[in-house]
Nucleic acid binder design. Structure first.
Lengths: 200, 200, 200, 200
DNA sequence: AATGAATGAGACTTCATTCAT
DNA sequence: GATGAATGAAGTCTCATTCAT
């Protein structure tokens, strides 16, 4: 008569809650993600949720953090991959960004929906890390003007992020190929001014 | 000295309610803008609100619409004004955009916070009108390639809008002057590719 | 420059309010008859209603009283008329009762709907007057057993009233002619036991 | 000594809510039976009520249904019991009906008060089942004229129901014994015409 | 560790009534 | 006498959170 190790069970429960929260968030949006619904989707009682999370926001913050990290990891991997390419790094990255964001539109929407509520308070980790990653890459390719590089990175991240997100959420009458073309052109042109070879 | 017409009183009350809603929205965000709080801020009873608005969303929709229109009017006026300038139209527009968005950051945040919830359903009027305005202007300066012009306009609006909004909401460590410089450079460079003289 | 005599104007206003209340009551039932709706239907302001009526119930009580009196008058007239007939008085009265109740089903429903709420408190005038009328008629035809006569009258009124009202409200699968036949038979048979000639 | 099963606790709570609703309904009528009052009377929070009932009407519908069923069961049992009697079945049934209706006058009032609001839409089950029961019994005693039998049953049920209910609610100056006498006479006389032996 | 019944503050909304004009 | 804007108590319902088991 062996009882399952408690640590392992706890871990499994937390995972189920987070997984359920992620699903609910993707399907019903931020305001539709109530604690009771999450608990039900996880197959646990409402009380169980509070064994592992301070309050409702703690759950969703964690999920959003996780979503961010998933995106970040994916983007980072792809980003680093493009550095080996001989040309059209920018375009490859835009493509990759669109792939990442189109994979789970519901979560992207939840992320976009929730972001303005917490900006200035907490959960800015994701964006900052991406900022630094991009800044670092730019710096590696173009050593001087380090001060300006941070601003450029900040701008690039916002432009790439919001144009692609808007395209996903608004579903405007613009083909993906056209979007890639134009966004790459804009970013490429901008980078060219920085002294970075446009097509690399 | 005639008695105050009842129409006028009603009008005044509606204005107080809308004004209060605007204030509450700016100070406490979309979810913090409850009917009771709005009524209290307006100095009227909860019931009064329902003499003039169908329900809670009707109030906030109206306020958001109003905020959008105020921004639109301001941007439109400034945008048209810049057309007379001999050079640096882009920069002037970026400046103007920042002025408009910095005036009431709370409302801009509320707008950004609520937008993703309704995207795809209703209230896309503001963005669409701006898209068309920009497209029209581009077309006036550069007659051919009309198909591409719409995509370009769509991109420009998103880039200008989100970069400035992000700067307002995130308050990053980037001076305003630098932002204006960089954003103008990016947009100017992009427009140059379209065949539009970059600095006019 | 003559101003309309105030008494007359007042009277007209009261009539419009009562008429509107009657209409609203017939169309939307007791719970749907709100003061604001009545005022609107009467083409007056809500405040005006309170110049003439203590409160909401005062209006509806008055309307219901009026409806009762209309029915009573109609029934009384017909009832007295049947006394001259040589036979089948009962049947003639049942017919007449159905005519009266089918004329305005909405109001009959409102009456039936509201009756149980006030029974035991107020507004029993109508039923009592009808009771006495019937008792008087029975007494005129059958002098002795006066004590029993009151009970018989009470029963007759309830039976005639509720069977016809149920038929109007429930709209069961029973033709009117059949109902008249059966109800007359029941009442006639009952009266026969009292010593009153069944067909008179 | 095992822990109280959760099902049992839920069941107990539902029972307390229904019991409280029944009490409130009896004491304050349909319109006085608010969710908060019911919850308070049940000794639970307002939210608890909504764990078990869709909305306010669901509670009251359930209670009224229950009251109807209680009455039906009681009436049915007594009705069947009288079939064995050698004579005066009718009188015995009238007595029984009065017993049933006098037991909880407040609930009978609530039932009578609410019935006209829903007539023609839903919840006519009780009356219909009684109609059929009576029709069936009549048919068993008097095989032919089956068409007429349904009308007769419908009439009998309304007469018995409304005369007794009126007597309970109006509390007129008629002794119970007299009422029984007269009502039995009326029904008995009517049945005699149908070919059913009057006193059996 | 897990449960899930229970909570209760607070949200939105209605409507009979009042009162300054 | 009439108005109708304003009121505010009270009603229904939700949902993040707690706690006895």
């Amino acid at each position: 008569m062996r009882r399952e190790p408690s640590q392992e069970r706890s871990r499994a429960t937390v995972d189920r809650i987070l997984g359920a929260a992620r699903t609910v968030l993707a399907e019903r949006g931020y305001d539709g993600a109530g604690t009771n619904r999450i608990a039900a989707a996880a197959g646990v009682g409402p009380g169980t949720v509070y064994q592992y999370f301070e309050d409702k926001d703690a759950i969703l913050d964690r999920v959003l953090e996780q979503v961010s990290e998933d995106l970040e990891a994916r983007i980072l991997r792809a980003f680093l991959g493009t550095l080996h390419h001989e040309h059209d790094t920018v375009r490859a990255n835009v493509e990759m960004l669109l792939d990442a964001l189109t994979a789970e539109p519901g979560l992207v929407r939840a992320l976009a929906e929730h972001a303005p509520r917490t900006l200035g308070s907490r959960r800015r980790g994701f964006a900052q890390r991406v900022d630094q990653l991009v800044a670092g890459t730019l710096l590696a390719q173009h050593r001087d003007e380090s001060a300006r590089v941070e601003t450029v990175a900040w701008m690039l991240v916002r432009v790439a992020e919001h144009v692609t997100i808007s395209w996903v959420l608004e579903a405007p009458d613009v083909p993906r190929e056209t979007l890639v073309e134009e966004l790459s052109a804009m970013i490429g042109g901008y980078l060219a001014r920085l002294g970075v070879p446009a097509a690399d």
